[in-house]
């Protein structure tokens, strides 16, 4: 464990806290992409199948359960619970996620670590996580302006994987047997997708006053 990875996990947890607060206190899922939340639920449920046999630390196992529970709760609330379910707009949030899941599944089959069924599923989840934010970014693009809490949610989510990039660099130079090309590649793509958002987020938050984040 290193500070980058720890801060990355804290940023990830923060993103869950912000989103759960927003949809439970704010009683609205407006501006939130259910498609992205469904993809994250698939990512965590597939990647953390090893919860039952790969016990690397209590910290890891605890957070795996937390991430599966939170992502599932978010999907449940937005899809089934009133009044949130009425604030979800399927016309706006209509990114064809099958075009993300399909290629990631093929990539997981072809490019993975050990050619075992779990490793194929694990690689699939890594590739899918890299592109899972796309429906959310498309939704924000359509709306043009980003609601304040939503902007903090997306920023925390982007920061989590950006901090993981630093964690991988740190581990590469401090551990002589560390190699994880799949997550290095996917994590770089994932963080890259946020660069445009981070630019507009920074512009809107600069100088302290919280002007709304505007995406062109």
């Amino acid at each position: 464990m290193n500070i980058f990875r720890f801060l990355g996990d804290m940023s990830h947890i923060l993103s869950f806290v912000i989103l759960l607060l927003k949809i439970t206190q704010g009683k609205s899922a407006a501006g939130i992409s259910l498609r992205t939340q469904e993809l994250y639920m698939i990512v965590f449920c597939s990647r953390y199948l090893d919860l039952f046999w790969n016990f690397s630390s209590l910290y890891n196992s605890f957070l795996k359960v937390v991430f599966i529970a939170c992502s599932s709760a978010i999907v449940y609330i937005i899809r089934f619970k009133s009044p949130q379910k009425d604030t979800w707009n399927p016309e706006l949030d209509n990114f064809p996620i099958q075009y993300l899941i399909g290629p990631c599944a093929v990539a997981g089959l072809l490019i993975n670590q050990d050619w075992t069924p779990f490793e194929m599923i694990w690689a699939f989840s890594i590739y899918l996580e890299a592109v899972a934010i796309l429906p959310q970014l498309f939704l924000l693009q359509k709306q043009g302006e980003v609601e304040n809490l939503t902007s903090h949610y997306v920023a925390a989510l982007g920061a989590y994987r950006g901090l993981y990039l630093m964690n991988w660099v740190y581990r590469y130079f401090t551990e002589d047997d560390y190699l994880q090309r799949i997550v290095w590649f996917a994590g770089t793509v994932q963080t890259g997708l946020y660069i445009d958002f981070f630019y507009h987020y920074y512009q809107s938050k600069r100088g302290g006053l919280s002007r709304p984040v505007k995406l062109p």
Partner: peptide
């Protein structure tokens, strides 16, 4: 030599 280790990250 570097080798892919078992998944110890989230």
């Amino acid at each position: 030599t570097r080798k892919p280790e078992k998944h110890d990250e989230l």
